[in-house]
Amino acid sequence: MAVTTDIGVMASAATARRPWRGPRLSAGALGAAAACVAAFLYLPIVVLIVFSFNDNVVTTLPLKEFTWRWYESAFANEDLLRALWNSLYVAAAATLICVAFGVPAAIALDRIDFPGKTIFRRAVLLPLVLPGLITGISMLNLFRVLGLNLSLETVILGHGTALISVVVTQVFARLQRFNRRLEEASNDLGARPLQTFWYVTLPNIKTAIIGSALISFTLSFDEIPVTFFLTGRENTLPMYIYSTLRRGITPEINAIGTIIVVASLVVIFVSVLMLSDKGER
């Protein structure tokens, strides 16, 4: 599949030395264009953060006084807190599923030959490019047939299905670079396959697993399209925000949004480091 993008390799590649600087297209113009794109990427995030501290009910310029009041009201909002808690529960459980099924799937793709492997690979990786809506609807259909009531648990199953591919691609990429002689050496020194996996293979793919798990957690925490179809009476935080947006913008959302964005930035930054060669030792 053309879309099995490997974050680790790219972050590693970024650190590789390259003496060659490419065709001499005007560096100035290119730099300016690049700066514009970078600004474009971060401007909305800055706006979000700035207005979460702005003492004004609407997000208009000029800025007014600095205030914590939106944070205070966000943390006084019972519905919001409940949704936050639900989201954490869903993301944690979905991440467990992703790791529990994604790591074996990556190992199977890396080293086991079986009939239908191509179809299996395509299916496992499909949700990377597949709109979440389709995963959500198809699983909604399944739960209807099974007579299962929608709940946070059905959301967890949905997120697991949609996000396994994240763990699979990253762990698979790391396994591909893993020197198989190490496992032979371990076997040779008397270690059984499980011991070899535990003492030799796992330590070498550990950072890829943790890194991709962190990404899965963040994505599940923010997920809407799958959640929309699979949740019951309980709301996750993004669903709560989504539904309040129908009623219009409140700076409360800016406040909780700022917290989410900053937390995500930190988590993602850590995971990208883990997936790069720094994580490989």
Binding site: R181, L182, E184, A185, D188, L189, V200, R281
Partner: peptide, 20 residues
């Protein structure tokens, strides 16, 4: 017998030292 049950040990060409 699998490798771990054989009383032989191997020195590898690329050393195969456990990096961690």
């Amino acid at each position: 017998d699998p490798p771990y049950q054989r009383a032989v040990n191997t020195v590898f060409q690329d050393y195969a030292l456990f990096p961690h």
